[in-house]
Structures are given as structure tokens and as C-alpha cells.
Amino acid sequence: MTRLLAGVRVIDLSQYIPGPFAAQILADLGADVVKVEPPDGEPMRRLGEVDEDGLTPGYKLVNAGKSVLRLDLKDEEGRRTFAELLSRADVLVESYRPGTLERLGFGRERLAELNSGLVHVALSGWGQDGPYRLRAGHDVTYMAVGGGLAISGTSEAPRMAFPPTADYAAAVQAALAAVAGLFHRGRGADGMLLDVSLMETVLAWQGPSLTAAARGTPLPRAGGMISGGAAWYQVYRTADDRFMAVGAIEHKFWHAFCGAVERPDWIARHAEPMPQHALAAEVAALFASQPLAHWAALFDRVDCCVEPVLDPTEVPDHPHVRERGQIRARDGLVEALFGLRVDGGPPALRAPVRDVEVAEIMAAWRG
């Protein structure tokens, strides 16, 4: 097990994907994470088809490694218990709309009174202030406003990504912020409020497209070097309706690709201006002439950044994924483990999510 954050106590007061995944990263790093849910549980428990235990696979996957405590924060006893947990915690991850914690009696001043060293990660769609602070949203709208959708997709229309990009990117951002906050606190500082926005996480990636637009040369959707305009950076359909991914950006890789498919006349065309529609059509015709197995076998022997697009059923059995031990199947779930190894050790395993009683957590956290 990875124990980099051993001894760190985390309260996960979030729901759905971003906050829970952020807290799971902290658990994967060794923190003790207690997820606090309302009496009826969080909606993700029942969002979609449920298993025999009454829980959805998505809920169990994103909350593995945590203990779950149900508290009614609108009730005086529930607030007392929550206040004691806060007094003993190192990190609070929450994803309420701004102002909700204040209405429950746990605004910044109250949190500071309870625990001056608390690292409070407030993860929200739009941030803690600004005109959109209370506006509803989901991944697709955060991507839309943050610039992540405009040049993604085909020439006809933007296309959403899966899994939801803003959700998972903001989760990583929130976990990184929490660890940085703990590091800062460890150097003698007090706790702090860390404001993490899903939209702004997406926005932070948009420097190149914003700069191009400001210079009057906006990046075209499906027309840029790595957005669909280059023949040597594309996804191509095979004869059996599968797909191959080509990422031969560097000239040496394109040269190797052209040699492998016996098309030396394509080598110099690497430098053709974007979009390279004519060349892409020729490469597409080539890939369409044979099934995926043919191309996978050919390029397995050639170092040129070309790989088959794997179906989710194929990923666990890929030789590299299997050798690295990144996938674990148990209890009808297929887990993708946190991609970190410490000193050559294996990835950290996660215990199943489990419901616990107040007494168990208090006994552990008072110790």
C-alpha cells in the first residue's frame, strides 16, 4: 500500500464524481478518508442501474477506500458530530454551492474556530465568487465556457469527451491543492481555504487557443496539428470497423510509418499545410483495406507511435496493462488503480467502500 499520506485525516463532504475522486486520490496516497453523506445517502448511490447491494457500480468505484458516515447536518446532533470530526481532520473536501456550508453553520470563521490547521478544499463549478458562483452546471457546460469544447470534435460540430474531462481534471486539481496545502501547513502556516473551480480547471489548459485567437489566427476545429488537421495525427477506421490511432508527430516516426506501409512517397508530405485532407484520405483508404489485427501486428514491430484503439473489454488483457498490474477485478467491479508506484512497488489496492457508525470513527479519530 502507498502510505505517503499516512496519518492524514480527510473528510469527504462531496458528491458525484469530482470531489469523491479527489478524496479517493488522497486515500490512494494513504490518507484516512471518511465520506460524510446525508441520512438517505448521496444520489450517486442510485444514479443508474444498481447491483444487488442497492448501490451503483459507479458509486462503489469512486468511493472505494473510504469509510462512509451518514449525518444529518440540518440536525443539532449531526452538526455536533460533524464539528468534532472537523476538529480532528486535516483536510475537508466539499462540493457544495458557495454559501451552503455557511447556512449549515460551518462558514470560514466557524471552521477556523474548530480547527485552525484545516485545509479546506472547496470544489465548485464556477468558483466561490463571481456572477456565476451560484449557477448550475455539469461537465459539458464547464467545458463549453472554459474553452474545452470549441475546438474539440469534427468540422461539423464540437464533441463531448468521455469520461467527463472537467470532472476528472478538477478532481486531480483539488487533490493536488490539498497536498500543497498540507505541505504549506507543515512549514508552520495555518490552514486555508482552497477555491477550485471545474470551469477554471478547463480554462487553465486553454493558453494556446486563447493566444491564437487573440492574434487573429484561431485554431480551427478538426484543422489543427493535433486536433484533426494532420494526416499523421489521426484516428483511422479499419476494414472490420475498428480503429487505429496514429500519432507520428515527429518526422522520424512518420518516416518509419511510411516505410512500414511501403509508401515512401508520403514521407515528404509530412510538411504539407494544414488541414491535410488529401493525404488523410489516402491514409484512410490504406487503413480501410485491412482489419485491425493486420495493422496491430504490423505496427507492433515498428516504433512509430501507432496503436490499436482498444475496446474496454480488451484493456485489462493488454500485455502492458496486465504486466503493470493496473487493473483489479473483484466483486463484479473492474477497478483502474491509481497510477503511482513508490520505489518500484505495486499500485495501491483499495478496500471496498463501507458504511460505518459514528462510534467507530470517533474511536479511531480520538486515538
Score class of each variant (00 low, 15 high):
Ser209His: 05
Gly127Tyr: 04
Tyr132Pro: 00
Glu357Asn: 02
Pro352Ser: 12
Arg88Asn: 05
Leu101Lys: 06
Leu203Phe: 14
Gly345Ile: 02
Val62Ile: 15
Ala166Thr: 05
Gly65Pro: 06
Ser67Arg: 15
Leu219Tyr: 03
Phe257Lys: 08
Ile17Ala: 12
Gly137Trp: 02
Leu210Ser: 02
His255Val: 12
Val145Asn: 00
Arg108Trp: 11
Thr201Phe: 01
Ser95Thr: 14
Met1Val: 13
Asp53Ser: 12
Trp254Met: 11
Gly344Tyr: 09
Pro346Arg: 12
Ala351Val: 10
Gln128Ser: 09
Gly247Phe: 04
Glu335Ile: 05
Tyr168Arg: 00
Asp167Asn: 10
Ser155Asn: 03
Arg133His: 13
Thr211Leu: 14
Leu340Glu: 03
Asp75Val: 05
Ala177Lys: 03
Arg237Cys: 06
His277Ala: 15
Gly344Val: 10
Asp51Ala: 15
Arg110Val: 15
Arg110Leu: 08
Pro18Gly: 10
Leu149Lys: 00
Ser209Ala: 15
Gly148His: 01
Pro352His: 11
Leu29Ser: 08
Ala178Asp: 05
Met199Gln: 14
Pro264Arg: 02
Ala348Val: 13
Met143Val: 00
Ala297Lys: 07
Ala280Pro: 00
Val10Ser: 09
Arg3Pro: 01
Gln173Pro: 01
Gly228Leu: 06
Arg221Ile: 01
Asp343Gly: 12
His255Gly: 03
Thr100Cys: 11
Ala144Gly: 10
Glu323Lys: 11
Phe243Lys: 01
Leu111Ala: 10
Ala271Lys: 07
Leu292Asp: 06
Leu194His: 02
Gly54Ala: 12
Pro98Val: 13
Glu360Tyr: 05
Pro273Val: 10
Ala260Cys: 11
Thr56His: 04
Asp139Glu: 00
Ile249Trp: 00
Ala166Asn: 05
Gly54Pro: 07
